[in-house]
Structure formats: structure tokens, C-alpha cells
Design a protein around this nucleic acid. Structure first.
Length: 467
RNA sequence: GGCCCGUUCGUCUAUCGGUUAGGACGUCAGGUUUUCAACCUGAAAAGAGGGGUUCGACUCCCCUACGGGCUGCCA
């Protein structure tokens, strides 16, 4: 790979499903890499064995796949690399930028408690920092980084600008635990370096951590990546997005039938802007996306706007692609799949269907006239439309439809003539006709339905209804 | 407690010292209409508060308030 190639990564820990926030972080990384012919890598941060679950890893992969965020190469398991992390910790030890600390967790806990009680700094200052380690050859120890205590450090963040921290705020964080396993802070840096990551785009919650991680880059003499810390996403109440807000998992949105394209568009626009552009394609997003367009403040998740965007994407989607998405939706929600006849009907009705739905279930509901079979079961509202009076009218209308050539124009004309002769408005029979054809009060226009199901089926359904 | 970050209509945002502070979602009022949706027209709606700097601040600086993050042998 060339020295200038962009390499981004998404590094979730498999302690839960893929959340909306994580999905957006992944999306931004993906957009940035894909928009520049770079690589988008995946790393599973599974060093916390107790909380890591392979099922979660799979769920995260599935979520990314649903969103169309493809990654390069195999996902890297952080756990599999712990020997390399330990190797770096030892290298730092040898170089004198880290040291062995023999303080016990109990000692540290006591210190912190006391510090808190006095409202003093709880940063632990290890007494072993400048003591030769060989004094305690057999005691358990951790390896700590030797952080500077004077001066200050300024880090440049593409989103936040220059951020300065006094070095005395830095603690000698643990690099390697007493059991020899690496701590997250070490693992991230080593992995990002080894994976040649050029741009670290992640949640705002890591901004302060960047200073601590920077210590490792410096100690090892590694070039630091470009940093971009994204403001977090909040729930509709302005609080941090959590379980309380209901759906937080990306998969939940898939199950609710939001199209992936709409989700991508919405998530891209949440915290990022390109002038006044609101609705855009993936190609445009890739072309336009840049770190400079990222906002600095947290954004609230707004389902209404998501729905609006989803409606726009459904309306402009390619019919065949939409059909595939519907089929995938039926699979993930455990519903029965489409027969080839239904799929065919759906495809033919798609133009009229897609401009009236914001989600896939909504589209499916309006496609009821295709998915159902004779005799059409009318729901309560639809049944109420099928009055005795209408049935009588139907008795007159149906025979006339035998002789109509089955085109939109001919149908419209013949219905208009029919209504005119009886001095009624089409609106008076549209509802009942809809009920007879679809068994619902909500559907595409009656002409659209008639054309899709065809002459024979139309007449059959109307005959059923008039009986 | 300490440190770091943030704050423009209800919400997402534009603005990069000079605008009647723009757009979008939502809301409200009309229109269109065969249901739903879509669509069209219009309206209400914002620079957290206080100090500076400047001829001129949403924009730069400081303070306060509020929100968030970090402060672990979690990630």
C-alpha cells in the first residue's frame, strides 16, 4: 500500500449489539475511506474476556452488513494479538519509558478513597516510578507508562481543533496487567499502528484518552494518526442514548423496516453537513464526506426525520433492489417469504407502492391487495364500506368491466361514464371499490390496483364483494 | 473534586466579523385529492446569560450557567 493511502478502522467491543452511535462511527470511517480509495478495517476489541461474546461480534458484523458498510480483509481480533501488545510494553520497559509497579490494587484503592474524601486529585502516583524494579523480583507487578509531569501537551483534533492538557493531569496508566495481559489503551495504539491506520475516527468519549495513548506513540517513536473525535448521539430527550430510549441497536431499525439507504443518509447527516444538502445518494455521500464537515456538538436522534428520509429513499429506489430489501426484511423478521407470483405482482405495483411508504411494513401493508388471495378478507373498516347499496351498484358495474380494454385510460373513462350516468361522484365508490379489491381502506389508487391484478382478478374480486 | 469538550428555531443544521440569521424535519393554516402517502403555498419558530475586543459580533477573548466526557489492573 502506498504511504498516502487512507486507512480507517471501526473497533467495537463485542459486549453488546451494534448501537446507533457505533453504527454512525463505522459509517463515518467507511465514508472517509471509501470516498478516497482507502481501506476500512475492522477490529474486534475483545480483550475483556468476561464481557466479550462471539454472538455479539456476529451481531455487529450483521449490523454493518445490513447498513452496507463493507470492510477490507478479515476482522482483527484484538485478543489474538496480546503477545504483540506485551512485547511493546516490554520494549517500553527496556527503553525506560515504562516501569514495573508493585503496588497492590488494595493499596491503590485505599489511596483513592482517601483522595476522594479530601477532594484531592485521585491520580495515583506510584512510588515505584523511580525505584529499581529488581528489588522485588518475585512480587506481582504491572507495567506502567512513565508519563511526563511537567509542561503541557497539545493534540490536534480535526473536529475539536487544538486541545491542550497539562501533563500533570496524566497518570502513569497501566500498560500490562499483573497477569501479563494488555490494557485497552495499549492494545489500541499497537493495533492501530500495526494495521497502518492513518485516521482514527471515533467517539468523543475517547478525546481525553488520546493524550494517554499519545504517550505510547511517542515512546515507540511511531507516527501518530490523524484524530477525529465525534460528538456523541443523544436520545430524543437530550440525554445520552441508552436503553431507556427504546431502540438503540441498529438491528432494531432493520427489524422496524427502515431501508438501509435511508438509515445511512440520516446517520450521515446527523452531526455532519454539506451545506444545505439533506437528501443524498451513497455516491454523493462518499464524494462529499469530509472530516471538516463534522459538527462539534452532540446531536439528538430524531425518528421523524429518519422516517422522512426513508420515505424519500423508498420512493426513489430501484424497484428490483427494493424487492430484494423487502425479501431480506421478511427473513430477518421471521415472516414467510414471497411466492414468485407475489414477488412479480409487487414488482409491477412497485411504482405506485413506493411513493406512499416510509418503511417496509408500511409498503407491505399497502401491498396487501397483491399479497392476499381470493376471497379477499376485508378488515373492519373496509367491511363497513361494503354496504348493501354499494353491492347493488357493483352488480351493475362489474358486467361493464368485461368489455373494457384494460388500460388506465379506458378504465378511467369507463368509470367516469358509469358515475356520470348515475349522478354520483367517483369519490363515492372509490372507497368501497378499494375495500372490495384490497380488503383495506388504505392502498394504492383503485386504477393502479386494477391494472396490477388484471381484468379477470378484478372482476372476480368485485363479484365476490357483490355477493 | 480536578481536567477536557460542547451550547444558532422543538429537532438536524448553514453561517467561517457586515445576511431581513438560510435550509430540512416536525408543527400550524390553506390548496390538490379516490383512501393513505406524496405534492404545492404560506405561517409561527433560534444565536444560553453576562462582560469585553471591534466602526461592526452568532462568529474572536474572558466569566457564569447548563450539558457531556475522562479521571480503572473496563473498553
Amino acid at each position: 500500500m502506498s504511504a498516502t493511502e487512507v486507512v480507517t478502522r471501526f473497533a467495537p467491543s463485542p459486549t453488546g449489539a451494534l448501537h446507533i452511535g457505533g453504527a454512525r462511527t463505522a459509517l463515518f470511517n467507511w465514508l472517509y475511506a471509501r470516498g478516497r480509495g482507502g481501506k476500512f478495517l475492522l477490529r474486534i476489541e475483545d480483550t475483556d474476556r468476561a464481557r466479550s461474546d462471539p454472538a455479539n461480534t456476529q451481531a455487529i458484523l450483521d449490523g454493518l452488513t445490513w447498513l452496507g458498510l463493507d470492510w477490507d480483509g478479515e476482522p482483527v481480533s484484538q485478543f489474538a494479538r496480546i503477545d504483540r501488545h506485551a512485547e511493546v510494553a516490554r520494549a517500553m520497559l527496556d527503553a525506560g519509558s515504562a516501569y514495573k509497579c508493585f503496588a497492590t490494587q488494595e493499596e491503590i484503592a485505599i489511596f483513592r478513597e482517601a483522595a476522594r474524601a479530601e477532594k484531592a486529585s485521585t491520580l495515583y502516583r506510584s512510588p515505584w516510578r523511580d525505584v529499581p524494579a529488581h528489588q522485588h523480583p518475585d512480587a506481582p507487578f504491572v507495567i506502567r507508562v512513565k508519563a511526563p509531569r511537567d509542561g503541557q501537551t497539545t493534540l490536534h483534533d480535526v473536529v475539536q481543533g487544538d486541545v491542550t492538557l497539562a501533563n500533570d493531569q496524566l497518570d502513569d496508566m497501566v500498560l500490562l496487567r499483573s497477569d501479563g495481559t494488555p490494557v485497552y489503551m495499549l492494545a489500541v495504539v499497537v493495533d492501530d499502528h500495526d494495521m497502518s491506520v492513518t485516521h482514527v475516527i471515533r467517539g468523543d468519549d475517547h478525546l481525553t484518552n488520546a493524550f494517554r495513548q499519545n504517550l505510547i506513540y511517542q515512546a515507540m517513536g511511531w507516527p501518530a494518526p490523524v484524530l477525529a473525535h465525534l460528538p456523541l448521539i443523544f436520545g430524543p430527550d437530550g440525554k445520552k442514548l441508552s436503553k431507556r430510549h427504546g431502540a438503540t441497536a441498529a438491528a432494531a431499525y432493520q427489524a422496524m423496516g427502515y431501508p438501509a439507504a435511508g438509515m445511512r443518509n440520516y446517520l450521515t447527516r446527523l452531526g455532519w453537513s454539506h451545506g444545505d444538502d439533506e437528501f443524498f445518494s451513497d455516491a454523493q455521500a462518499r464524494e462529499w464526506f469530509d472530516l471538516s464537515g463534522i459538527g462539534k456538538s452532540p446531536a439528538q436522534f430524531d425518528t421523524k426525520k429518519l422516517e422522512h428520509l426513508c420515505g424519500q429513499h423508498i420512493a426513489t429506489a430501484d424497484n428490483a433492489a427494493l424487492l430484494h430489501e423487502i425479501e431480506a426484511f421478511l427473513v430477518v423478521t421471521g415472516q414467510t417469504g414471497l411466492t414468485s407470483g407475489q414477488a412479480d405482482g409487487l414488482l409491477r405495483a412497485m411504482d405506485s407502492l413506493k411513493e406512499r411508504a416510509k418503511t417496509i411494513p408500511e409498503l407491505l401493508e399497502k401491498a396487501r391487495f397483491i399479497l392476499t388471495q381470493r376471497p379477499v378478507q376485508a378488515d373492519e373498516k373496509a367491511a363497513a364500506q361494503l354496504t348493501a347499496q354499494f353491492r347493488a351498484t357493483l352488480g351493475e358495474l362489474t358486467p361493464q368491466l368485461q368489455n373494457v380494454s384494460w388500460t388506465r385510460h379506458a378504465l378511467e373513462t369507463s368509470l367516469a361514464v358509469f358515475c356520470e350516468a348515475r349522478e354520483i361522484k367517483f369519490g363515492q365508490i372509490a372507497g368501497p371499490l378499494r375495500a372490495a379489491l384490497a380488503g383495506r381502506t388504505v392502498s394504492p389508487s383503485v386504477f393502479d390496483m386494477m391494472l396490477v391484478i388484471g381484468q379477470d382478478e378484478t372482476i372476480a374480486r368485485l363479484t365476490d364483494a357483490s355477493a
